[in-house]
């Protein structure tokens, strides 16, 4: 058994934090966590990289302070070709990311929760290039239930 505090050490000891030591691929969501930047005009931006031979997004968990539009810079520093299929209202956004390339994606995510994205191309699926975008905040006041505040977990 392990505690949460020991998680990072044990991940390293077992080889769960790299490619092809414990698992074959990279364990989902075992990478870094990052926050989107909110600008004075309300825009949100973030940069997500694919580092060489890691087959993981960096950060692998991107946190937005609230729902809305976000501009992503996507950088592939790897020596292989990948892609990204990202959640966005209207349609999912697709971008092809050849070796050593840089692209952009503008997403609209309208509410709180955890959204997944991935690199749905041959050789990548299941290997670790599955990332999460977590949107913080609450729904608008008019959408909330008319009742006293309730306990949460």
């Amino acid at each position: 058994m392990t505690s949460a505090q020991e998680r990072s050490d044990l991940m390293g000891k077992l080889g769960l934090n790299v490619q092809n030591r414990a698992a074959i691929g990279r364990l989902l969501n075992s990478g870094n966590v990052g926050e989107a930047k909110e600008h004075g005009d309300g825009r949100m931006t973030a940069t997500i990289r694919i580092n060489p031979d890691e087959l993981t997004w960096d950060p692998q968990i991107l946190v937005m302070p609230h729902g809305g539009d976000i501009e992503l810079e996507l950088i592939n520093d790897d020596q292989n070709t990948h892609c990204a299929l990202l959640p966005s209202n209207g349609d999912r956004k697709f971008i092809w990311l050849v070796n050593h390339s840089r692209g952009r994606a503008t997403l609209n995510l309208d509410g709180p929760g955890c959204y997944w994205y991935s690199s749905p191309t041959g050789n990548d699926e299941g290997r670790g290039l599955t990332g999460a975008i977590v949107v913080l905040g609450d729904v608008p006041p008019e959408a909330r239930l008319d009742r006293p505040d309730q306990p949460r977990p």
Partner: peptide
């Protein structure tokens, strides 16, 4: 320094349907 290849802007997946 090697310049990045410009991957452009992500497009609607439906455009590839």
């Amino acid at each position: 320094t090697v310049e990045y290849v410009d991957a452009g802007e992500a497009i609607d997946q439906g455009d590839l349907s």
